[in-house]
Simulated assay, not measured.
Amino acid sequence: MKYLVKKFDQPLKGAVQLTSSKSESNRALLINALSGNQLQLHNLSAARDTQTMQRLLKESGEVWDVLDAGTTMRFCTAFLAVKGSGQTITGTPRMCQRPIGVLVEALRKLGAEIEYLGQDGYPPLKIIGIKDQQASLIEIPGNISSQFISALLMIGPSLPDGLTLRLTTEVFSRPYIEMTLDLMRRFGVQSLWEGNEIKIA
């Protein structure tokens, strides 16, 4: 097979539209859902994790299956703690081997009722949700997955007393936390990060 390549005498001018990253898209979808889906989002990632997030946020089933989407598992666990009605969240066998205990413990301190349906510290989970907020200050290590921290930050505005996260160790994934806070600002959420504390009204 032969190809004919033509040389242009002048530079080409144009623009290539790139889709958003999975990290940006999944955060934007969750924040929008928490704020009542007031905005129509465009240019979302085509990744399966993002497609799974969109599917789950549109349905009202009793079982939320995230498949193998780790970001979706962590973000939707926090979402169901403030917006759910007793759903079970699960995933593939491999997903049910990925630890989620740090996030569950933090949500329990906030007042969520969460039951492990298998091994403690791992999905699947039965999430009753937060009826009365039990705390507004949560201590959590900074060297864990930023997805745990981001999940908590994003539900902060939905809590009656807001949320302050005190990071008890060095922060390993600061850019991803800053991405979360920046996207929240675009939805009108004010935050303050001073020292080792992040405050969400």
Rank of each mutant, 00 (worst) to 15 (best):
T169L: 00
G142D: 10
D132E: 14
I138L: 14
D182T: 11
G121F: 01
A201S: 12
G129S: 04
F148L: 02
M179C: 10
L183C: 09
T168F: 01
S136N: 15
L152C: 07
E170M: 06
N196M: 12
L192N: 11
W193E: 04
T164M: 11
I198H: 00
Q190A: 02
D120E: 15
I140E: 08
P160V: 02
L152K: 07
L153P: 02
R166V: 11
R185W: 02
K199P: 00
D120G: 10
T169K: 06
M184W: 12
L165Y: 08
L125F: 03
G188R: 00
G156C: 13
L165I: 10
S191Y: 15
L165R: 07
Y176E: 01
G162S: 00
A151P: 14
S191H: 14
E139M: 14
Q134H: 09
R174C: 14
E197G: 04
E139H: 13
I144P: 00
R174L: 15
P124W: 01
T164N: 11
S173N: 11
F172L: 10
I200K: 02
D120R: 13
T164W: 08
R166L: 11
I127C: 01
G162K: 03
M154L: 04
K131C: 07
Q133E: 03
I149V: 12
S191D: 12
G121A: 03
G195M: 09
S191L: 12
M154T: 04
I149S: 09
S146P: 06
M179I: 10
L192V: 11
I149F: 09
M154W: 06
G195S: 10
K126E: 03
R186A: 08
A151R: 15
P175Q: 03
P175I: 07
I127P: 02
F148K: 03
A201T: 11
L152N: 08
P124Q: 06
D132K: 15
T164L: 09
A151K: 15
D182C: 12
R166C: 10
S146L: 06
Y122L: 07
S145H: 08
G156Q: 10
P123C: 05
I140H: 11
Q134W: 10
T169E: 02
Q190N: 01
E170P: 02
I149L: 13
Y122A: 05
P141F: 09
K131P: 09
V189L: 00
V189I: 07
K199M: 00
L153I: 01
S173V: 10
A151N: 13
G188L: 05
E194Y: 05
D161K: 15
L192S: 15
G188T: 00
K126C: 04
T169F: 02
L181A: 07
L137R: 14
K126N: 06
R186Y: 07
G162Y: 03
V189C: 06
G195A: 11
E170C: 05
